[in-house]
Design a protein around this nucleic acid. Structure first.
Lengths: 121, 121
DNA sequence: GGAACAAGTGAGTACATGTTCATATGAATA
DNA sequence: TATTCATATGAACATGTACTCACTTGTTCC
């Protein structure tokens, strides 16, 4: 989380300055890198993957999701909060139930792309 | 990591059986869900995101990467091992240096797609 | 061979994170 | 109003993980 303030991490003469300069120019800003890590990290959990995939197949309430996954509704609820905060899912209240749906078309695409990777490897 | 063996997690009558059945049929297998979580988890770290992005701009040795990121070469090396194991990057040895490149076109695409999400959010 | 150095790795540590358990909230129903 | 139940949430706990530090390996150059 904290990085050294001086950049001469490589003590002596190993740097390929041309490459380093070129890459440094095109590097992601901190916010972008952080944002990417955040969204990918959110997708990087088995439970959340399965929740999102289930929701990609249709609207479900918390209880439905926990039945599909075989997980407690508490665990599911905790994960849904993260997904809600990140605006990946959307909640709709109806009586005692809260129905969730995907709230991000990008997620669907990321999923598809990720699956391609997984399946062909 | 361990899930309850009985599926009547929702004690009484909240299930919407039609929805649950439909979704259950289309659900990801365990291996697929695990595989997805694994690849996304790998992308879900600030340091690894920056390493991969740097490599997407050109081939770099470990020392170059640590200079670009402002991280120790040990930290970078540890992360590169994970990326190498997952076949996301490829190593080429040349004298004392080891040069790394991206080894997966999917990653490039996932990156692009993720960035879209982050930028427009 | 010996010095210098890039890279890899194991152990230890600090911190993040996912789950469970207990409890709270809020809506329907008796 | 009291009960029941779906959902949410806080605390505690256990596990995972990213870093540092010390050390090893393997290569180049003297």
């Amino acid at each position: 989380m904290n990085k050294p303030t001086n950049l001469d991490v490589c003590e002596k003469q190993c740097l390929h300055l041309d490459r380093v300069e070129r890459v440094r120019g095109g590097m992601l800003g901190d916010e972008a890198a952080e944002g990417l890590a955040e969204i990918f990290g959110l997708l990087g959990d088995r439970t959340r993957v399965r929740i999102l995939h289930a929701l990609s197949l249709g609207e479900l309430c918390v209880c439905d999701i926990s039945a599909v996954l075989g997980a407690t509704s508490s665990a599911v609820s905790h994960q849904l909060r993260l997904l809600r905060t990140a605006k990946l899912v959307k909640a709709r209240k109806e009586g005692k139930n809260v129905f969730y749906t995907l709230d991000d078309e990008h997620v669907r695409q990321l999923f598809a792309q990720g699956l391609e990777h997984v399946l062909e490897r």
